[in-house]
Amino acid sequence: MTIYFYGSDEVPYGCFSNFSDHGLDLDGQWWPTSEHYFQAQKYVGTRHAERIRRARTPLRAAELGRDASVPLRRDWERVKDDVMRRAVDAKFRTHADIREVLLATDDERIVEDTTTDNYWGRGRTGTGKNMLGRILMRTRSRLRVDFADAR
């Protein structure tokens, strides 16, 4: 079986979305969502990054993070997967309730069901890289080991 997710309001898997209302503490700061963290890292060390962190919603953080008039950090393409990995890991380590949802997926394949993103999701043709789904599955494996005694 494959688990498809997209919207943060979908039950029970909306928590897999970077827009889900699950804040995290990373790099010495509190981030309202993993979307806020991810988008801000494109401009780390700038005022724009702080503007993204303070955005009222994850959608606004995403919009600010896609502002083509603000230059991205030079190494973004090289580090973006690791940035996403760190955000997802922190989110699921912080919140026991959604950690349990992720762990309860056993070994099911997890896919971000978006037709508009061929990199983070499955894309229009269904053959996208699904990097967010892959990161979630990798995170699940690590959490299974790290929280084995707690279950």
Rank of each mutant, 00 (worst) to 15 (best):
M1E: 15
T2R: 03
I3N: 12
Y4Q: 10
G7K: 11
G7V: 10
G14M: 01
C15E: 00
S17K: 01
D21A: 15
D21H: 15
D21C: 15
D21Q: 03
G23C: 07
G23H: 12
G23S: 05
L24F: 02
L24R: 15
L24Y: 09
D25T: 11
L26S: 05
D27E: 08
D27S: 01
D27N: 11
G28H: 09
Q29L: 15
W30G: 12
W30S: 12
W30E: 09
W31C: 08
P32L: 13
S34W: 01
H36L: 14
F38R: 00
Q39V: 14
A40Q: 01
A40M: 01
A40G: 02
A40S: 02
K42I: 06
Y43H: 06
Y43P: 14
V44E: 08
V44R: 10
V44A: 14
G45T: 05
G45C: 00
T46Q: 12
R47W: 00
R47P: 10
H48N: 11
A49M: 03
A49F: 00
E50N: 06
R51I: 04
R51T: 05
R53E: 05
R54E: 12
R56V: 05
T57N: 05
T57S: 03
L59V: 14
L59E: 10
L59Y: 11
R60P: 10
R60Y: 02
A61R: 00
A62E: 06
E63T: 07
E63R: 07
G65T: 03
R66G: 15
R66M: 03
D67H: 02
V70M: 13
P71D: 10
L72S: 11
R73H: 09
R74N: 13
R74W: 07
W76K: 01
E77T: 06
R78L: 15
K80Y: 00
D81R: 11
D81G: 09
D81F: 15
V83N: 08
V83R: 08
R85L: 14
R86W: 03
V88F: 12
A90E: 03
K91V: 02
K91Y: 07
R93M: 08
H95M: 00
A96W: 11
I98Y: 06
I98A: 10
R99V: 09
E100H: 14
V101R: 04
V101T: 14
L102A: 03
L102C: 10
L102V: 04
L102K: 02
A104D: 11
D107E: 08
R109E: 15
I110W: 04
D113M: 07
T114L: 04
T114Q: 03
T115S: 10
G121E: 15
R124F: 09
T127R: 10
K129P: 07
N130F: 15
N130G: 11
N130L: 01
M131Q: 09
G133T: 06
R134H: 04
R134W: 06
R134Y: 06
I135G: 06
L136Q: 07
R138Q: 15
T139V: 05
T139Q: 10
T139E: 13
T139P: 03
R142G: 02
L143N: 04
R144C: 03
V145K: 12
D146V: 05
F147I: 01
F147V: 12
R151M: 04
